[in-house]
């Protein structure tokens, strides 16, 4: 059998929402888990990659998140927020990885690592974005501020979804996001003054 995930049609994932997946889980946990993987691996990969800034690390971290999801017994329970849980776990793993890397002083080493699929146009777009002024300034922010800005403006999560990921109230999302943008504004002003 091919290495690709079996049983479910990969074309269907965008049409499946969490309640459909939970319904599927009642008859086949494996199929439901495959659907979860297919539906969320791409957004999680980019979320991870914006934080760790390395393809292989982001890829491995997302894989680890799905292995954790398979062990999460509440995953298909009625009131469980699958997407919020996946983003929360991915964020935590990524920020831990970056912290550990900084502790080891290996940041420069990783940033110099070549991209695995060749520096084609799209990779260059990605790398260009990574090196943009805003992205560079995001790295100067606290983890909380960087996380909320990524979730909103790069991962395109709604305020309500962000509240679920961070397990905070909607008002807290609004105030944290505002503070993050004001802090980003200060950092960008400082950078432009320094240049």
């Amino acid at each position: 059998m091919s290495a690709a995930l079996r049983l479910v049609n990969p074309q269907n994932t965008s049409q499946w929402d969490e309640s459909d997946i939970k319904e599927l889980a009642a008859s086949s946990t494996r199929s439901a888990m495959e659907m979860v993987i297919r539906k969320y691996r791409q957004p999680l990969y980019f979320h991870a990659r914006y934080i760790v800034k390395d393809h292989q690390e982001a890829y491995d971290l997302v894989q680890e998140v799905f292995i954790k999801a398979m062990r999460e017994t509440r995953l298909f329970e009625e009131d469980f927020k699958i997407k919020a849980w996946l983003f929360r776990v991915t964020s935590n793993l990524c920020f831990n990885t970056v912290r550990n890397r900084k502790r080891r002083g290996a940041l420069l080493d990783t940033m110099m690592r070549p991209e695995p699929f060749g520096a084609d146009q799209l990779e260059r777009i990605f790398c260009g974005e990574q090196q943009s002024e805003v992205m560079a300034s995001l790295d100067e922010l606290s983890d909380d501020h960087k996380q909320i800005l990524l979730l909103r403006y790069y991962d395109d999560l709604s305020y309500a979804e962000i509240a679920e990921v961070l397990q905070v109230k909607l008002g807290t999302v609004m105030s944290r996001l505002s503070r993050a943008r004001m802090r980003l504004m200060d950092v960008m002003q400082d950078t432009s003054l320094a240049n």
Partner: peptide, 21 residues
Amino acid sequence: FWGEMDTELNGHLDALVVAPV
């Protein structure tokens, strides 16, 4: 792109024993 992840996760899915919900 996802081949490596699919192979790895398929192994875990095969070993997956989860009580039906």
